[in-house]
């Protein structure tokens, strides 16, 4: 299934070693103990075009990291690299290292299925399966081999509660999820991602298809989840990045221009390119 080749070594996509993506020890140098995902001169190419250019940054565990930048700056490509969604894109290859718990995500020992269980993703448009609300949330746990009804019910309830959706759908768990509103569908997708108990939640423009009220509910939810998960969100909406994130990375033409505390980046950016972008003078 892999279309992604790594420059130094081909990646063994279906490696059987599940330990490769198990949680790394907290020992080691301070930076490793803190960082959950670390990019080291990490690049992503689509054929000859370098969409992400030698990006180096360390995303700490828990909290919310926002990635901003104009269209085509590589922010979604970078996000999707973290759970290897770009594997499906023809002509896509990477160089450098992208480390998750001390293991290179593109290393030969990675089990992509296990990786994606630990790194959940929520997309721009809500994409529930045309199944019942219950089956949507139970989908991941079932795929992991869980069959006990009671256990599934417990996971579904807990996940829907974590996604702040349970009270709204508890009486219609057996109904088709397509009947939910857009905002509810998006929270269902978050519940579905949470059901397999991931450590990282990637969000690619999670509210761009939602109205302001539904957007505000998702933002509240992100604030609730930030203590438990490492959340990385790509957004075009700079005010949203400023509201929900602890740290912000600004990418421009594939390069990481600035990465720092959100409060500092939006009041006193270090780089003039960041200043120009966030104040609307270019981009």
């Amino acid at each position: 299934m892999s279309g992604v080749k790594k420059e130094e070594a081909m990646t063994g996509v279906n490696g059987s070693s599940k330990t490769a993506v198990m949680r790394g020890s907290a020992e080691g140098n301070g930076m490793d103990a803190e960082a959950h995902v670390t990019a080291e001169r990490f690049s992503v190419f689509y054929h000859n075009r370098e969409a992400v250019r030698q990006v180096s940054l360390a995303i700490p565990a828990r909290g919310v990291t926002a990635i901003i930048g104009p269209s085509g700056c590589g922010k979604s490509t970078f996000l999707r690299a973290i759970n290897r969604m770009n594997d499906l894109v023809p002509g896509c290859r990477v160089s450098g290292r992208l480390v998750f718990d001390k293991e290179d995500i593109y290393g030969p020992r990675i089990d992509v299925v296990a990786l994606r269980r630990r790194v959940g993703m929520v997309f721009q448009k809500p994409n529930p399966f045309p199944k019942t609300v219950f089956d949507n949330v139970a989908y991941g746990p079932r795929l992991c081999g869980l069959t006990g009804r009671a256990q599934l019910e417990e996971i579904v309830e807990r996940s829907l509660k974590s996604a702040a959706l349970f009270d709204e759908v508890k009486d219609r768990l057996g109904q088709n999820a397509i009947g939910l509103s857009g905002g509810q569908q998006q929270r269902l997708c978050i519940a579905r991602a949470l059901a397999v108990d991931p450590e990282i939640l990637l969000m690619d423009e999670p509210t761009s298809a939602l109205d302001p009220r539904a957007t505000s509910r998702i933002e509240d939810l992100i604030a609730e989840l930030r203590g438990k998960y490492t959340i990385i969100i790509v957004t075009h909406n700079m005010q949203q990045a400023a509201r929900v994130s602890d740290r912000t990375a600004f990418l421009y033409e594939g390069n990481l221009i600035e990465f720092g505390p959100t409060k500092q980046l939006f009041t006193k950016p270090r780089e003039s390119q960041t200043e120009d972008y966030i104040t609307g003078r270019f981009g």
């Binding site: 700079m238 005010q239 400023a242 939006f266 009041t267 006193k268 960041t274 200043e275 966030i278 104040t279």
Partner: peptide
Amino acid sequence: YQPVAADLR
């Protein structure tokens, strides 16, 4: 305009 950075300041 919800200004940021130098404009906000």
